[in-house]
Write a protein that binds this DNA or RNA. Sequence first.
DNA 1: AGCACGCCGACT
DNA 2: GTCGGCGTGCTC
Length: 834
Amino acid sequence: MFQETYADLILPLPLNQLFTYRVPLHLIPLCIPGKRAIVQFGAKKIYSAIIRHVHHEGKAIENLKEIIDIMDNAPMVLPVQFSFWDWMTAYYMCTPGEVYTAGIPAGLRLESNTTIKYNSGFFDDEFSENLSLNRNENRVLDALKAGKPLNLTEINDLLGIKNSMPIVKSLVEKGTVLVEEELGEGFKYKTEKYISLTEEFSTDQMLNQAFDTILKRKPRQSEILEAYLALVGFEQEKEPKPIALKEFLLKTGGKPASVAELAKNGIFKITVRNISRFQAIAANAMPVINPLQEFQHEAYLNILELFAQKDTVLLHGVTSSGKTEIYIHLIAKYISEGKQVFYLLPEIALTTQIVDRLRKAFGNRVGVYHSKFSDAERVETYKNLLGFDGIEGSSPCMLVLGVRSAVFLPFKNLGLIIVDEEHESSYKQINPSPRYQARDSALVLARLTGAKTLLGSATPSLETYFNAKSGKYGLVNLTRRYLDIAMPEILLADVHEARRKKQMKSLFTPLLLKEMEMALAQGEQIILFQNRRGFAIYLECHECGWVPRCRYCDVSLTYHRFADKLICHYCGFTHDVYKKCDNCESTNIRTKGFGTEKVEDELKLFFPKATVQRLDLDSAKGKHAYNKIIGDFENGKTHILVGTQMVTKGLDFENVSLVGVLDANQMLNFPDFRAYERSYQLMAQVGGRAGRKNKQGKVVIQTVSPENQIIRQILANNYLNMFYTQAAERRQFNYPPYCRLITITMKHKNKLILDDSAAEFAKLLRTRMEKSIIGPEYPLVGKIYNFYLKTMLVKLEKNAQAEQNKIFIQQVASRILNHEKFKGLFLIYDVDPY
DNA sequence: AGCACGCCGACT
DNA sequence: GTCGGCGTGCTC
């Protein structure tokens, strides 16, 4: 009996369901889970969707649409990845489509775009009199007649209205324009032309004949042919060797026209090959793996021993203990056993420094997956791992260095995952959904693939260290520094006291100034750390205290000197700098607070001869800006580097003798249960940048509370002490690692409805999770983009059935969302918030 | 997320 | 009247 075939597909949309399509007969043999299918969704949109299940149970829905086409010869998403996707969807309370969007590079996700173009078959002379076009319709038509096709957004911009659909529709009805649905181009191979002898002319005999006849009076072509034969080393009866045209012309100085002539005469064959977008490492580059020092070797053996019993090991090694060297030896071991290694690291730590080091050790087998790479490059890496990148002679990378999103790569033979700087908060994706923790996700990936995981950090997160202490993870300590470089000396500068004695010079204490002068005098470099978070510059009226605020959000606007504008950090709203107070008309308006920009300015006053550079999100925006700043500092062009968190990340500089923390309290006072842990981590990491082979470095911490617990622990370089005191607090107040958190953010345009729905939501949740629900409360910023916000914190007991609880939350949520009274309510889940 | 549809206030 | 904003519902 004939059975209709159906496929459940994942569409790249935030919809909490799969969609069933009919599989037409001719596509049935090709329809395999993991491949992409092209389908129409809704009235016009066309997407590439992932085939999740193929089956014969037709839904009760009439008129199921058919799959238009199936794109791939083999699955793009492997069975293990589907397990991983399913886990992520359930754990982070997101939709399959969101995981698809996050996990597959954009070049592999096709989506149609609506374009509107002038109907050239339409003759306006004949009809224009009968057409009554209004002003907007005329403007659109004129623009289309004069220029290229436009999309809807462009027409919206052109007219300055939000929805130009009705206008386009009217124009279509009048026959003046055409609407086309175009599928995006997606990934394209980078190609290169190659030349070789045609088969016909692949023998001595034929070549001689060619020289004597066809090329007799063609000296240019003869030269080219001779040059080719000399270059490739012609051998009788052997396959003719192709050579890249570009390379050939460069080496021989020949003209492309002569080559073309030879091809026309049937002697040369020109082929087009797909080539890699990544620069090849010279074939003769010998792998360099430095031997380990004895204490490092011990740790290495220790890790391997623990891997025999545990799936996860934490390598807790002080800064400059040479963790990377140990990683390299582990990678070499796994690769030699034919296993792939995935090296996960934070965005900012993935620098040329580390890539070069690993390339030196592992040559061409290293793949890099970074957000600064173009999408085409990411597609290439993705396909390379699948084993069909279409590039001759390439094989799947054995080592992949990647950032957060690399956890989605299709490893086929994974043996080891290394998570470097494991404590880094940037492993957590905040927006958009899925709000996943890449370190935690990597652990799940390891479990699913049977790989081992090594977590590495000088300042492990409380969660990880807790797991190591409890025996869930193996623990290896590295307490010595490479070449026994001394730990830096840490000095406290009491800002409070300096203020009292009127000794503060702008942002600097006398101690920090003195140390800076000394370092500069000896030709040494300085890093200054100022975490601007929550402390940006804003304007204030000195007469009445008025502060400019965002029109849409409940926050004050911050001043950006670079753009000379006031900007809302939440919605991006910008406003010109106020010259006059909006409240009292006074012109006495000043800036308050300080960030890295201000520090940079002040430094120029105090140290006019020193070169100062700034490293933060603003200054490192461009593709190469970051590398330039780091490079300048590395080779000594810059004397003082001022930066935010970015300066703390895994960079090693030879000549830095002094690190200054400008305001430790700003971090300590941040309203978050992780503020102390973070402050410790940041200060320990940035402090670790100080010190050189033969000289002890210095760290100066400016603070108003020198007796603060964390400051004391930093001073004593006592991570363990920090761990125990912080863990005790977490236990007392029931925070991770003693429980799991979920924050639920509710959004509505109407404040009253928001309050009502939030109260109702909390009430329903409390029926089953009485003690676990905190709030709802207004967050620090109570209104963003004209939406009022309320948050609720869910604390799940460590051993509670987390999955059951999440399902319960979602059930309650759908009741609330479907409630007539609460229309227009949005919910955002953040599981394990950071 | 798009996109269609329908309601409603504010202009020519 | 009609234009354009905005809320609501649906997508195999």
